[in-house]
């Protein structure tokens, strides 16, 4: 009897406890679902100009020689959307560039990376320019030095002007 008397009071205490537990479970479930979805930040505050400003420093990874800001491919539109998201998250331009480097590799910067074999692409034009400049300089210097033409000058001075004129006349008369 005594036990029978106690049972209802236990049930009464359990009901609010179950409610609290259910509430907590629901709360955890909803918040964890919300966290798992990681909603994309609001990009409405990021202007297209700001996005293009960053996109101008990047290149379409699928096209050749097209800057990201000028590219209308779906892949590029997605990239620009990602720039907007990153900017909305407060990422710096450098951080965004680093992100795209990690995703797409150095071709997204439109220039060969300064490492290994790719150094040739940076060095060769400079070497070519310097070498070409030196070559031109040598050729010009040589031309300037040989300008007096001593051989012709000596020929002129060796032959008396009259003889020379006569021979010239003779030669010319052959063509008349």
């Amino acid at each position: 009897m005594l036990q029978d008397d106690k049972e209802p009071s236990v049930k009464i205490h359990f009901i609010p406890l179950i409610r609290v537990l259910l509430f907590l479970i629901l709360l955890v479930a909803t918040t964890s679902a919300a966290l798992a979805q990681t909603p994309t930040p609001d990009t409405s505050a990021i202007s297209a100009d700001r996005v293009n400003e960053v996109a101008r420093g990047l290149w379409c990874p699928l096209c050749s020689g097209v800057r990201l800001d000028a590219c209308e491919l779906k892949a590029c539109v997605q990239m620009k959307e990602m720039i907007a998201i990153k900017l909305a998250e407060g990422a710096s331009e450098e951080a965004i560039r680093a992100y795209f480097l990690e995703q797409y590799g150095p071709q997204v910067f439109g220039e060969p990376p300064r490492e290994g074999f790719n150094w040739l692409a940076w060095i060769l034009p400079v070497v070519g320019l310097l070498g070409g400049g030196l070559f031109v300089w040598f050729v010009i210097r040589r031309m300037i030095r040989s300008e007096p033409i001593p051989a012709v000058a000596s020929a002129k001075s060796a032959a008396p002007p009259d003889d020379y004129s006569q021979k010239l006349e003779q030669e010319l008369s052959r063509y008349d």
């Binding site: 070498g131 030196l134 070559f135 040598f138 050729v139 210097r141 040589r142 030095r145 051989a151 012709v152 000596s154 020929a155 060796a158 032959a159 021979k167 010239l168 030669e171």
Partner: peptide
């Protein structure tokens, strides 16, 4: 014309340092 060229004395051909450099380049 050939006569005239013949009359001109031969220019002594010497490999100057400048021409050697041009060859190297």
């Amino acid at each position: 014309m050939t006569e005239m060229t013949e009359t001109l004395p031969d220019v002594p051909v010497e490999a100057s340092p400048a021409s050697r450099a041009v060859l190297i380049w």
